[in-house]
Amino acid sequence: MLRQFLVALLLSLTGLHAAAETDIFISPEKYRADPPVSGQVLGDNCSACHGTRGAVFDEIMPPLAGMDRDTFIKLMLNFKFATRPSIVMNDIANAYTEDEIRRMADYFSSLPAVPWKAQSLH
């Protein structure tokens, strides 16, 4: 009881409420009737961290290129539904529909598991 109180006090002192107010969340289901976003367009949003075409193999964030399709879907759904806590992926996976996650999986699983800089372009 005392601890709960202390935690609440700590949170209010540090201004949690102000932070919570800035969070916005609209379910991706809202956009269902819009034309689809392709797997590649979705995937291009991942590259700033996971590398161009998801093909950076020597970083903290794992490569996505050539990732097994089912593994990709399973992990992303776990992130989306927060059954698997993560540093940042819960917040990211939240934004996509399950269809979009499958399209990303199709896209990344079709790419070679080779570092981007070692790939030939066309």
Binding site: A19, D23, F25, K30, Y31, D34, D91
Partner: peptide, 20 residues
Amino acid sequence: TFRFHKGRIELQQTLQSPLQ
């Protein structure tokens, strides 16, 4: 995350990491 919806750019979600 931003989407194009009904003719404009919409902020679908923005989330911050926890404070503590």
